[in-house]
Simulated scan of single mutants.
Amino acid sequence: MTLPAIRSYRLTAPNAPDTPRLARDHVAYVLLGNRLLGLADTARLLVSEVVTNVYEHTATSVVAVETTIRPGQVLVAVHDASPRGIPPRRALPEGEEECGRGLSLVELLARSWGVTQLGYPEPVGKSVWFELRDA
């Protein structure tokens, strides 16, 4: 059986404390099932960071994670219904601080990433996305 060249998977979950874990496990299983084992650990980390940002910085009730697979490539987009944008990347925190590293990790480990406002003319949400490529 030949797999289609482009496949998309979507997880919709409540914006809750356990959602980052559920989202990262979902994306890892999708990648493993599509023979992209080499991207699974990085994808798990980045999904966890982005979904945690939704939980900690928005009041939206639902978060959706869309994973699009192309040959040798994965695009993950985390959608929420908060029009508030993501703050610009800050310098890494010093010392043992636990907060403030998420988007820096995304920038460091992803081939590309960005934020897309959803809705026109007034934003009704956003999508934080990142792309990984298989070496």
Rank of each mutant, 00 (worst) to 15 (best):
Ser82Ala: 13
Ser82Glu: 06
Ser82Phe: 11
Ser82Ile: 06
Pro83Glu: 11
Pro83Arg: 11
Arg84Gly: 10
Arg84Lys: 15
Arg84Val: 06
Arg84Glu: 13
Arg84Leu: 10
Gly85Trp: 10
Ile86Lys: 13
Ile86Ser: 10
Pro87Val: 02
Pro87Cys: 03
Pro87Ile: 00
Pro88Glu: 02
Arg89Ala: 06
Arg89Met: 07
Arg89Gln: 10
Arg90Asn: 01
Arg90His: 04
Ala91Thr: 01
Ala91Trp: 01
Ala91Ser: 04
Leu92Ser: 05
Leu92Ala: 07
Pro93Val: 03
Pro93Met: 03
Pro93His: 02
Pro93Trp: 08
Glu94Ile: 09
Glu94Asp: 02
Gly95Pro: 02
Gly95His: 14
Gly95Trp: 08
Gly95Glu: 02
Gly95Gln: 06
Glu96Val: 01
Glu96Met: 03
Glu96Gly: 03
Glu97Pro: 02
Glu97His: 15
Glu97Arg: 15
Glu97Lys: 14
Glu97Ser: 08
Glu98Pro: 00
Glu98Thr: 12
Glu98Val: 14
Glu98Lys: 13
Glu98Trp: 15
Glu98Leu: 13
Cys99Ser: 12
Cys99Leu: 14
Cys99Val: 11
Gly100His: 08
Gly100Lys: 03
Arg101Lys: 11
Gly102Gln: 11
Gly102Lys: 00
Gly102Val: 04
Leu103His: 05
Ser104Val: 05
Leu105Lys: 01
Leu105Thr: 03
Val106Asp: 06
Val106Glu: 12
Val106Asn: 04
Val106Met: 09
Val106His: 02
Val106Thr: 08
Glu107Asp: 15
Glu107Lys: 00
Leu108Cys: 10
Leu108Asn: 08
Leu109Arg: 10
Leu109Phe: 14
Leu109Glu: 03
Leu109Thr: 04
Leu109Tyr: 11
Leu109His: 08
Ala110Gln: 12
Ala110Trp: 12
Ala110Pro: 00
Arg111Glu: 06
Arg111Pro: 01
Arg111Ala: 09
Ser112Trp: 15
Ser112Leu: 07
Trp113Gly: 01
Trp113Phe: 12
Trp113Asp: 05
Val115Tyr: 08
Val115Asn: 09
Val115Cys: 07
Val115Leu: 12
Thr116Ala: 06
Thr116Ile: 09
Thr116Glu: 13
Gln117Arg: 10
Gln117Val: 05
Gln117His: 05
Leu118Phe: 01
Gly119Leu: 13
Tyr120Thr: 09
Tyr120Arg: 14
Pro121Ser: 14
Pro121Gln: 15
Glu122Thr: 14
Glu122Lys: 11
Glu122Met: 05
Glu122Pro: 01
Pro123Cys: 05
Pro123Glu: 06
Pro123His: 04
Pro123Met: 07
Val124Cys: 11
Val124Glu: 06
Val124Ala: 11
Val124Thr: 14
